[in-house]
């Protein structure tokens, strides 16, 4: 069996048995041994693959030095030339999950090597990499390791041998968001009638085309003292500084931007304009405050009607942006506003 495929394993400082939180700042290193979960992994590959080494990196180091970390790790991968890269599982650990996810994305995009990882479904890393890597569904704590590894190994085995993966349910991974066209036993009309009868009987049924879910959030309590409140201004109308320094897309936005407006009286032209591709930009470009009314908020701040306009102005474009992206933006922006103790938010949309 000289034709074994090669697997490279990635773990954080904890699973790499270097140390706990105190070692989270360690830079990545390559270790030709099989460390932590990598140790038992080879056995699960049933003699078809071998683990050629382990990359260990501190979670904080990775997240704070993403580019440097990726450069190092990608170089190791190039040298070792594995057929499959395995990372984690990260369970519900946010920083570890983000590291696995960013690594997975880079490896798939740049090196075209398949990656298997494992995460709890609510790990923020899932959304980052599930389209690129295979993310198996794990429990939320390391107690699920014994269950996770065989699932990951089974997938690694298929990837290593170039065998097509089955459905997410069969293989235990989180759906990648791919609509796969396939044949089923029953014709469509039959499936429709069965679905109808199940609905009529109040039995469970599964739609073949799930609609995006809109859940409702309980309203946050009102601001008590407006005169002391810090108000943040956000827009999905794509108002950006001249030159669009962060390259916010005109549609299907992949990112948001924040700009310091503490010294500004208004979002005036030509310092600001709209990059939004979803409406006629003429009016917004004449007076950007028509989309995001910083001018009025600043006046109210002066008058003492409100305590303060928050230093940062947040912006993105709303058109064609996937629900999952909008959600991601909201979570990131919300976390920042919460940390900054902002009391209320005005969000304008075009």
């Amino acid at each position: 069996m000289s034709e074994k495929f090669k697997v490279l394993y990635y773990v954080n400082q904890f699973f790499g048995q270097v140390g706990g939180e105190d070692k989270a700042g360690m830079a990545p290193l390559f270790c030709p041994e099989k460390v932590g979960p990598a140790a038992g992994f080879e056995g699960l590959l049933k003699g078809a693959g071998e683990v050629v080494g382990t990359v260990i990196c501190g979670d904080n180091y990775f997240n704070e030095n993403k580019e440097r970390s990726l450069e190092f790790i990608l170089n190791v991968i190039k040298e070792q030339a594995p057929q499959v890269v395995v990372a984690g599982p990260a369970f519900n650990a946010g920083r570890y999950g983000m590291a696995c996810a960013e690594l997975a994305k880079a490896v798939v995009d740049e090196l075209k090597i398949p990656v298997v990882t494992g995460m709890y479904v609510e790990n923020p890393g899932v959304d980052i990499c599930k389209e690129k890597a295979i993310v198996i569904r794990t429990s939320d704590s390391a107690g699920g390791m014994r269950k996770a590894l065989p699932t990951m190994a089974a997938i690694a085995l298929k990837l290593g041998k170039g065998i097509e993966l089955g459905s997410p349910e069969e293989e235990g991974y989180i759906p990648r968001g791919m609509r796969k066209t396939l044949f089923v036993e029953k014709r469509g009309s039959q499936r429709a009638v069965e679905m109808l009868i199940a609905r009529l009987k109040g039995e469970p049924f599964q739609t073949e085309m799930p609609m995006p879910v809109f859940d409702q959030v309980n309203p946050a309590p009102a601001i008590k003292e407006l005169g002391k409140a810090t108000i943040a201004l956000c827009t999905s109308g794509g108002i950006v500084p001249k030159g669009n320094p962060d390259g916010i897309q005109s549609a299907s936005a992949q990112k948001w931007g924040k700009y310091d407006v503490s010294t500004r009286e208004a979002l005036s032209a030509p310092d600001f304009y709209t990059t939004h591709g979803g409406y006629d930009p003429v009016y917004a470009n004449e007076i950007p405050d028509r989309v995001a009314p910083l001018d009025i908020l600043k006046e109210f701040e002066k008058e003492g009607l409100i305590g303060k306009v928050y230093q940062w102005f947040y912006t993105t474009t709303g058109t064609g942006t996937a629900v999952s992206k909008a959600k991601e933006f909201g979570t990131q922006i919300g976390a920042e506003l919460k940390a900054a103790e902002v009391d209320g938010v005005i969000l304008t949309s075009t």
Binding site: P175, T181, L182, E185
Partner: peptide, 14 residues
């Protein structure tokens, strides 16, 4: 991709 369900093709989330 018959929309009266005449054929047995579908899509699944993968």
């Amino acid at each position: 991709t018959s929309e009266i369900g005449f054929h047995n093709v579908t899509c699944r989330l993968y």
